[in-house]
Amino acid sequence: MRGSSLGMRLRWNVHVLPVVVPLTVLMAFMAVFVTTPALAEGYPSRPITVVAPAGPGSGWDLTARTVSQVLTETRLVPVAMPVENRAGGGGAVALSHVVQNRKGDPNTLIVFSPPLILIHLNKQTPFSYRDLTPLARLFNDYQIIGVRSDSRYKSLDELMAVLRQNPKGLVVGGASAPGSMDHLSFMMAAQQSGVDVRNVLYISFPGGSELNAALLGGSIDIVSTSVGDILGYIEAGSVRALAVTSPERLTDPRLSNVPTLKELGINATFEVWRGIFGPPGMPEEARTYMSNALAKMVQTPEWKEMLRRFNWHPGYLPGDQFKAYLDGQEKLMGNLLKEMGLLK
């Protein structure tokens, strides 16, 4: 009825307007009453694409699909949220796409984690988190340092003792590039243990399955990887977890006996945060809407079940606090990369 009466008033106004009023003025007058309310009340009206900066099955892909699923199933977002995979460059390809091709787009989101900072520090891309619109940090994941179950090394201290004497005496493996998460999480612990991290041997593998095969096959001595990527091997008894990078012991029964770095005298933690961003210049209406939806999402039973299922740990921060957190992380990681001699 409101639409019908508005149409009647508009028709009546058109009828009594003097014929000397230019058509462009009339169209502008109508736009004030018709177009503006439709925009204000209509978001979102089209599908919102969630960009994952890696292929299907990756951590970014899982994050994107989980966020999409929970937001749509709970009707916090009433439109489809398809996931678009844009792999390459450790996230640089997807970042460049969103920054350069989706500026101001209210219907594009992108998920990211620490490589967003690292690929900029490493000069793989001129773009950084400052070129995006931070909406929320969603959760944290942590890293495991482990060895094969039949390894002669029973503790992290034994490993570090060897590396202090001979930094090239053991080989570390991870599923991320040199200077990225798996590499940095181990080197941070090694640095705090007095190891010359510039000379520690690190081999990067394309994925978790290749990494774990290398550990079990004896190609590497130490594995540094995310909890999710190694948990099945720990549960099966083929990998011995020596430390976790979380601030406190994890509550999962399969990991409750794994000490934290701090318990072992290493004053360090390493968070693999996961967050969601909008493109640069995201319209304020869209930014507010999505920020509010994400704030509500993290309180839902559906989201909490996903955290439990994937061993993710609550770590929600709203946009402004997330930005401040990223500023601190950039400084922390930059200092570590400099000490490792990895900054170009």
Rank of each mutant, 00 (worst) to 15 (best):
Y233L: 14
L326D: 06
R309D: 10
K103I: 12
S246Q: 03
W312S: 03
L250G: 09
P134V: 08
P56K: 12
I203D: 00
L121E: 11
L132S: 12
E158I: 01
L62G: 03
W303G: 04
A161C: 03
A64H: 04
Q143Y: 09
A268W: 09
W12P: 00
G89L: 12
K304D: 01
S291R: 06
D61P: 06
V98I: 11
G228F: 02
L242I: 02
A324H: 10
R2M: 11
T24G: 11
V162K: 06
V298Y: 09
R75E: 05
T269R: 10
E285A: 15
A87T: 05
V21P: 04
V239F: 06
E271G: 10
L17Q: 11
I234N: 12
W273R: 00
A175M: 14
L62H: 06
A52C: 12
L332K: 09
A268I: 06
S128G: 11
V83P: 07
V195A: 04
L264F: 07
M1T: 15
N107Q: 02
E248G: 10
V19G: 13
S149I: 07
P167F: 14
G174H: 06
V195D: 03
A64S: 09
K123V: 06
T300H: 08
L261D: 02
T72F: 05
S226A: 14
Q69K: 13
A286T: 08
G328Y: 08
D182N: 11
G237F: 09
S113D: 13
W12S: 12
T288Y: 05
G207F: 02
N140G: 08
Q329M: 04
T63N: 14
I119K: 10
S5T: 11
T49R: 14
N292G: 14
G328D: 10
A80G: 06
M290H: 06
D131Q: 05
L250M: 15
S58F: 00
A161L: 07
F270Y: 15
A40M: 12
L317V: 13
E248A: 15
L294T: 01
K154Q: 10
A324S: 11
V200P: 02
S45L: 03
S58E: 01
L39W: 12
L255W: 05
L242M: 07
D320I: 08
G3S: 15
G208L: 01
N140Q: 03
T288E: 14
F112M: 07
R137T: 10
F29L: 15
K338S: 13
P178M: 11
M306A: 14
L326I: 00
L215F: 10
I276A: 04
F186Q: 00
Q329A: 09
L336E: 04
V244N: 10
K344L: 08
A213C: 00
P47I: 02
V239P: 07
I110P: 00
Q321E: 15
L231F: 02
V14A: 14
G328R: 01
I203L: 09
N122M: 15
T63P: 08
R249M: 11
G217S: 02
S256V: 12
Y202S: 06
